[in-house]
Measured scan of single mutants.
Amino acid sequence: MDVFMKGLSKAKEGVVAAAEKTKQGVAEAAGKTKEGVLYVGSKTKEGVVHGVATVAEKTKEQVTNVGGAVVTGVTAVAQKTVEGAGSIAAATGFVKKDQLGKNEEGAPQEGILEDMPVDPDNEAYEMPSEEGYQDYEPEA
């Protein structure tokens, strides 16, 4: 019985440690998101679009440190934060509304985080759909 109880105690310690790591990862992701939003706020009209992409990228980098179902929630929060940063930029006159959601080359930025393969159960990952990809044929 002692062996059984000791095993359960060790398992509990492992769960607590994993929860603490997840909590730490979420806190880091939130900190990076805040950094990115402050970065966007300090940019001029020309830099705002690039700044919004930076927020998304920093958040995406930190999301990889967070495991399990938390990833889905962090990704949703990050996307809403990026959308909010863009709205703030438009409201303050840093950028025109028609410039939001495009990178410096004018290509749409939507789907940055949505296409990231995420499995809350950590069982399997699927690649994003290939609808947006084109076949590449090298020139002879």
Rank of each mutant, 00 (worst) to 15 (best):
Y125V: 07
I88K: 03
G86P: 11
P117V: 07
Y125M: 02
S87R: 03
T81E: 06
A90F: 13
K58C: 08
Q109M: 03
I112V: 15
M116T: 13
A17M: 14
E137I: 08
G93A: 15
E110I: 10
V16E: 10
Q99F: 12
P120R: 10
K21L: 13
V74P: 02
G93I: 15
A19K: 04
K102V: 11
H50P: 06
K45Q: 03
P128T: 08
K10F: 10
A78K: 04
Q134H: 06
G73E: 10
T22I: 04
Y133C: 15
E28W: 04
M5L: 00
D121M: 07
I112T: 07
S129K: 06
T75P: 02
G14V: 12
K97P: 02
E114I: 09
V15K: 00
D135G: 05
K96E: 12
G36H: 10
S129R: 03
G31R: 02
A19R: 02
K32E: 00
E35T: 11
K23E: 00
V66H: 03
T75M: 14
F4R: 00
K6D: 07
G73T: 08
E137V: 08
Q79R: 07
V55F: 13
G106C: 12
E20D: 10
V16S: 15
P138C: 11
S129A: 13
T64C: 03
G36T: 14
V71S: 05
L100T: 04
K60V: 15
S42E: 04
Y133S: 04
N65C: 07
A56R: 14
T92A: 03
V26H: 00
A107E: 05
G14C: 03
V63P: 02
A89C: 03
A124S: 06
G41Y: 12
G36E: 11
K80N: 09
K96V: 13
K97F: 09
E110H: 03
Y136N: 02
A124G: 09
K96M: 10
E13G: 11
I88F: 05
E57H: 04
V118Q: 02
P108M: 10
V66T: 05
G14L: 08
V26T: 01
G111M: 02
A90Y: 15
D119C: 10
G84L: 10
S87T: 01
V74Q: 04
G51S: 07
D121T: 09
V3T: 00
D119N: 08
Y133M: 06
V82A: 07
E123S: 03
K6C: 15
P128E: 12
K34T: 05
A91T: 08
M116I: 10
V55N: 00
D135S: 07
K34H: 13
G106E: 11
Y133T: 13
E126F: 03
D119T: 04
I112K: 05
M1P: 00
A89W: 13
K60Y: 10
V63I: 13
D119Y: 08
V55I: 01
G132W: 08
E35K: 06
A90K: 02
D135R: 03
A85P: 07
V3L: 08
V55A: 07
K6L: 15
Q99K: 02
P138W: 09
V66L: 13
G106I: 06
G101N: 04
V40E: 00
K32C: 01
K60W: 09
S87W: 10
V49T: 15
E114M: 02
G86I: 05
G86R: 07
L100G: 15
E126V: 06
I112W: 04
G41H: 09
Y39Q: 07
L8K: 00
S42W: 12
T59I: 03
K45F: 05
P128K: 03
E105P: 05
K102P: 15
G36D: 02
A124K: 12
V74I: 06
E13P: 00
A29K: 12
T22H: 06
A140T: 13
K10N: 12
V49S: 05
A78W: 08
A85S: 12
P120V: 03
K58R: 04
T75F: 15
G84S: 14
Y39E: 02
G25S: 11
D98Y: 10
I112C: 06
E105M: 15
T81F: 12
E104S: 13
G51W: 14
T54I: 08
E137D: 05
A27P: 00
A140Q: 15
Q62G: 04
T54S: 03
V49H: 09
L113Q: 08
G36V: 15
A19Y: 15
A11Y: 08
V77S: 02
T54D: 01
E83C: 05
D115R: 11
K6V: 06
K21E: 00
Q24E: 04
G101H: 04
G86C: 14
N122I: 03
V15A: 07
T59V: 14
K23P: 00
T75Y: 11
T54R: 15
T54P: 14
S9K: 10
A56W: 12
A124F: 11
M127D: 03
V95T: 13
E57G: 03
S42D: 07
Q99C: 11
E110V: 05
G7L: 08
A90E: 02
V55S: 02
F94P: 06
I88D: 04
G73W: 02
E46H: 15
V66P: 03
E28V: 07
P108Q: 09
E139A: 11
S42C: 11
D2W: 02
G31M: 14
K97W: 09
E35P: 01
E104P: 10
K6S: 04
V82G: 06
E104H: 09
G41F: 04
Q99L: 13
G106F: 12
Y125K: 09
G14R: 01
V82E: 05
N103A: 05
T22E: 00
T92K: 04
A69T: 01
G93V: 15
A91Y: 07
T22A: 15
K10I: 13
P117K: 14
N65D: 07
F4N: 00
T59K: 01
Y39A: 08
V26E: 00
V40W: 09
E110M: 06
E46M: 12
G36N: 13
K60E: 04
K34N: 01
V3G: 01
Q62T: 14
T44G: 08
A11L: 11
G93K: 14
N65R: 08
E83S: 05
T22V: 13
E110W: 10
A11P: 00
P128M: 11
S9D: 08
E114H: 13
G67W: 10
D135I: 14
A140C: 07
V71Y: 15
G132N: 11
G101F: 03
E61P: 03
P117D: 04
